[in-house]
Nucleic acid binder design. Structure first.
Lengths: 207, 207
DNA sequence: ATATTATTTAACTATATGGTCAAATTTATA
DNA sequence: TATAAATTTGACCATATAGTTAAATAATAT
């Protein structure tokens, strides 16, 4: 018999929503079942345990992140453009799912080994290429010297923060007016790119 | 009768550790009791419920953050120096408690109203002063134009990220060698300050 | 010393929650 | 159509967990 994909799909979508919002510890199997419009027994029929279901969702998420990393590394362009490209696509991903950063950060802290091994499965080479290119461009004086891990931390931090702290941003925009907040998040693309460009481009000493 | 402060203190320290690491949903009253070297009943004797205890810890935390914000605003210095000062003290705070960022971000998302009201209690004026000063210096051409909320998001993001993603940083440093990771976090002070200075200082068009 | 008040504990309760099971129902197949 | 297989359900079970209670102990005041 052919498996009915729609039930499984509904479960996965529900699980994603609930896990993302509440985290592994805060999520309830009952809530996931309700959200999917089924009962708990069926939930366990499809995914044996909460852990299994969570791992499934986590894998999906890591995969999506890996995909955007990979697409950044595919083109043969300078570091700054590479970073700008990354900012662009990553903000787009987060616009679709603002809980992603906090979800991932929580998992990184709650179960570092599992997360690390998942990352290792997906992202293999890439990073080394990036480091080499960065050191290259620094040596050529094309960009200011910076440790790769520091650079990545800075860019990721700038991208992620407003999404992870979204309710605070909303509050700061006043009146909980969602469109304004959404607009702010979209502006991050340009702001972060400009910030990075300014920070990395050497000042002209002889112009 | 005088309350024995040491038991209450031990409870609060235990609660802080457990809540910080596991979050509200992941924390267990039993674990807090164990960590404090007492039993659950006594825990409930001092703090009636898990919620009450959590709120207590959260208040403490918000207070600490408010303190470092206030100390940043006390001195009468240019924006860039103000930010540098903030980076300095905030990284120091996080070196003492690396779980703080994730803890706060989680709470912001899980209970935005409560968090916002706590913030409002502590931080009242300040922010407006900061915004006015920023716009002032931009007009004077002393720094590049940037929306205050974007600037704060960028700086906070850069500071917070490596702490929130600490296990990943450890992994990236190789061999889970803690001192290297600690050292990396300390370097953030200089790196972020330099990043901010470079990003905000206008390029010299006529030197 | 004795009464009073605060602290601490062991044992308990109620409920939430992850998970199971056997039976019913639907869907595919011979 | 009859049979087998997959899907779905309601009713359960076991355990974890927040919270309670009554009684014991320690500290303080009279």
């Amino acid at each position: 018999m052919v498996k009915d994909i729609s039930t499984e799909q509904r479960i996965l979508e529900a699980a994603r929503r609930v896990f993302m919002k509440k985290g592994m510890a805060g999520a309830r199997m009952q809530e996931i079942a309700d959200e999917a419009g089924i009962n708990k027994a069926l939930l366990h029929y499809y995914f044996r345990s909460k852990d299994k279901l969570f791992e499934h969702i986590l894998m999906e998420v890591v995969g999506r992140i890996a995909t955007s990393l990979k697409s950044m590394m595919e083109l043969d362009i300078p570091i700054i453009q590479r970073l700008c490209f990354f900012v662009e696509i990553y903000v787009d991903v987060l616009m679709e799912n603002r809980y992603l950063p906090l979800f991932v950060l929580t998992e990184i802290n709650q179960n570092p080994e599992r997360f690390a091994s998942m990352i290792r499965e997906h992202i293999v080479v890439n990073m080394q290429d990036f480091i080499v290119q960065l050191e290259d461009e620094i040596e050529q004086g094309k960009i200011n010297p910076v440790h790769p891990l520091h650079l990545v931390s800075s860019v990721l931090g700038m991208i992620i923060f407003p999404f992870a702290a979204f309710p605070l941003i909303e509050e700061a925009m006043g009146d909980n007016f969602a469109p304004l907040a959404r607009n702010f998040l979209n502006q991050r693309k340009e702001v972060v790119k400009e910030f990075v460009i300014n920070a990395l481009t050497p000042k002209n000493h002889d112009k």
